[in-house]
């Protein structure tokens, strides 16, 4: 199951001092905090970690259907800046992160095929997008999880928006 997240990076530079310390204590494991604090670009690394956790949460929610705000239960155990290995509920997830302009985009390993659509106006992604010249309808289920319907196929997808931009990642 695919999960994604989009983070508008400049927002993450706003916290500082004691506020930043308390913020990090609430969401990162001790090992993640050490990695962040020792990184030369610590704000960027924490934004990446957050996007990774959110992407895994969305992926896991599709299976577990459990709403909880427990970011430390999604633990990053290894990373190289682009690829992140994560453990959640004894299950391993691999997440890929890219940085473009002011945005951090994370997506869990989506399987055989993957398409990513980004929209500079986040109101445009809501109802349908075009894939290979055919409309794909986006419909949310009772849990608020979006699904894609394209050429009589139901597709696994994940939607995220931040900073006025939206991204839709589709698994084929």
């Amino acid at each position: 199951m695919i999960g994604n997240d989009l983070v508008y990076f400049p927002d993450w530079k706003r916290r500082s001092g004691d506020r930043l310390r308390r913020f990090r204590q609430k969401i990162y494991t001790p090992r993640e905090r050490i990695w962040i604090e020792n990184d030369s670009d610590h704000h960027l690394l924490e934004a990446k970690f957050w996007a990774v956790k959110e992407a895994v949460y969305k992926s896991a929610f599709k299976k577990l259907r459990e709403r909880k705000f427990a970011p430390k239960s999604i633990a990053i155990v290894d990373y190289d800046g682009i690829h992140f290995s994560v453990i959640h509920r004894e299950e391993q997830y691999l997440v890929t992160v890219e940085v473009a302009k002011d945005f951090v985009h994370a997506v869990t390993s989506p399987g055989v095929g993957h398409l990513s659509f980004s929209f500079e106006d986040d109101s445009h992604y809501r109802s349908q997008i075009t894939v290979e010249e055919s409309a794909m309808k986006l419909v949310k289920d009772n849990f608020g999880v979006p699904h894609g319907f394209w050429k009589n196929r139901k597709l696994d997808l994940s939607v995220s928006h931040d900073g006025g931009m939206a991204v839709v990642d589709v698994s084929f």
Binding site: V7, D11, W12, R19, R22, F23, K26, I27, W50, E54, F69, A70, K72
Partner: peptide, 21 residues
């Protein structure tokens, strides 16, 4: 969702409480 953490931090300051995980 990141701002949910800010709300929790603001609540701790406003009410002088500690909200555990």
């Amino acid at each position: 969702s990141a701002h949910l953490v800010d709300i929790i931090l603001d609540m701790e300051e406003e009410f002088d409480i500690e909200i555990d995980d």
